[in-house]
C-alpha cells in the first residue's frame, strides 16, 4: 500500500492521487490510530501501521481465512475490508485473546491437540473457533465445527486435529457451566 503503480491505465480508472485518512480503532482494548490511504486493507493497517503481525495474509482473495479478526464482536476477513470502513470499530486480533499471559482455552487446546503444523493458518483458525464457540453457546458437534470452518483453509493438518481442538476448547469453556447447571 502507498505504492506508486507505474503501469498505464485509462484516465477514468480510479483516482490519480491517494486520499489519506486517519483511522482510529479500539484494538484489543486499546485505542489506536494511524494514517493510511483510503485503499489500505484492514489487515495491512493492523500489521504494518499497528505492528500486530499475528494476523496473517494467506491468499489475499477472501478464501483462506488466515486474516480473520473480530470486528464489533463478529468474525470478519480483514483482507476484504478497507481500514477506513472499519474506522471507529472495536477489533480483536489474535494478540488480544490471551488474558494476563494465560493462553486462551482455544489456544491451549490447539497446543494440546496438535491443531497446527506450520502454524500459518492458526491465528485465523483460533479467531474463527473463538467466534464459533461463542455463537453456539456450547451446543457444538463435529459436523457443525467442520461446516463452520468452511471459510478457513489449512494445507497441513487435514483438519482432524483442528476439529478436535475446537471441540475440546468448547468443552473446556462450556462443560463447567453445563455441569454446574445439572
Amino acid at each position: 500500500m502507498g505504492t506508486v503503480f507505474e503501469e498505464t491505465r485509462a484516465p477514468s480508472m480510479g483516482q490519480e492521487e491517494d486520499n489519506m485518512a486517519k483511522v482510529t480503532l479500539t484494538v484489543n482494548g486499546r485505542t489506536m490510530s494511524g494514517e493510511c490511504d483510503d485503499r489500505t486493507l484492514l489487515v495491512h493497517f493492523i500489521r504494518e501501521k499497528l505492528g500486530l503481525t499475528g494476523t496473517h495474509v494467506g491468499c489475499d482473495t477472501t478464501q483462506c481465512g488466515a486474516c480473520v479478526v473480530h470486528m464489533d464482536g463478529r468474525s470478519v476477513k480483514s483482507c476484504s475490508i478497507l481500514a477506513v470502513q472499519a474506522s471507529g470499530s472495536t477489533v480483536t486480533t489474535i494478540e488480544g485473546i490471551a488474558a494476563q499471559g494465560e493462553l486462551h482455552p482455544v489456544q491451549a487446546a490447539f497446543n494440546q491437540h496438535h491443531g497446527l503444523q506450520c502454524g500459518f493458518c492458526t491465528p485465523g483458525m483460533v479467531m474463527t473457533a473463538v467466534d464459533m464457540i461463542g455463537r453456539h453457546g456450547g451446543a457444538l458437534d463435529e459436523a457443525t465445527v467442520r461446516h463452520e470452518l468452511e471459510g478457513n483453509i489449512c494445507r497441513c493438518t487435514g483438519y482432524h486435529n483442528i476439529v478436535k481442538a475446537v471441540l475440546a476448547a468448547n468443552e473446556e469453556m462450556h462443560g463447567a457451566a453445563r455441569q454446574a447447571a445439572e
Binding site: F5, R9, G14, Q15, D38
Partner: peptide, 9 residues
C-alpha cells in the same frame, strides 16, 4: 487496488 476516496454516509 487503484486509489479511491472513501465517504461514510
Amino acid at each position: 487496488m487503484y486509489a479511491t476516496s472513501y465517504h461514510r454516509a
